[in-house]
């Protein structure tokens, strides 16, 4: 299940998305200004505190999201063990965790609509040029919505296969899965049209 925004309301949920994203840009740049591992460790501790403040559920969800960087951290440390520059490896690893952790914090406390609002504002010059930017604003939530649906489709196909075959399914499911995805796309197109999807919202007509 993909729900990047935390259902656990925090005070940061109410901050403007643009402000959070701008702050993230600044903080991410600032992380590269220090070369002191102690400063970095302090920042990491502050990050951990930020995750812990909204409560245990939030902390656990955050930790789960951050597991993604773990393999890269291990790879980085092992590599620098070989090159005998463990200090460098530690710095890079901490920086990486800090960057991903900060970005994830913004993701968890910002609704998709908030993100889309910022994107819409950033795309204003392109819209002025006549590009249909509203299509992008629909495409991104569609991707998030249909990732779990496609995974469920793949699971169902694999089940149907295993119900009548002794061997495990492999690449042969790719084509039927693709056909189903195209079929789904047709249905979504229809649903979009039924509620005015391809039209621009009235206020965008400038």
């Amino acid at each position: 299940m993909i729900s990047l925004t935390s259902p656990h309301r925090t005070r940061a949920h109410d901050w403007p998305a643009g402000l959070k994203l701008a702050g993230l840009c600044l903080a991410s740049t600032a992380v590269f200004l220090t070369d002191d591992p102690w400063v970095m460790a302090g920042l990491l501790a502050a990050l951990a505190l930020a995750y812990a403040l909204p409560g245990r559920a939030f902390l656990r969800a955050g930790a789960r999201a951050l597991r993604l960087v773990l393999p890269f951290v291990v790879l980085m440390l092992v590599w620098h063990l070989f090159t005998r520059d463990l200090r460098m490896g530690l710095m890079i690893s901490m920086r990486m965790v800090l960057l991903v952790g900060l970005a994830n914090l913004v993701t968890m406390t910002t609704s998709l609509q908030g993100m889309m609002g910022v994107m819409r504002w950033l795309l204003t010059p392109f819209r002025r040029l006549g590009l249909p930017t509203h299509l992008l604003e629909t495409a991104i939530p569609l991707t998030i919505r249909f990732t779990p649906v496609l995974i469920a489709r793949a699971d169902a196909l694999a089940l149907a296969w295993r119900a009548r075959a002794a061997r495990r399914p492999g690449w042969r499911l790719v084509l039927p899965l693709m056909m189903q995805a195209l079929d789904d796309a047709d249905h979504v197109g229809e649903a979009l049209r039924a509620r005015g999807g391809p039209l621009k919202p009235a206020e965008q007509e400038d």
Binding site: L142, V149, D184, A191, L192
Partner: peptide
Amino acid sequence: EHQIIFPT
């Protein structure tokens, strides 16, 4: 599933 467009 053919109608819902958004994740929330």
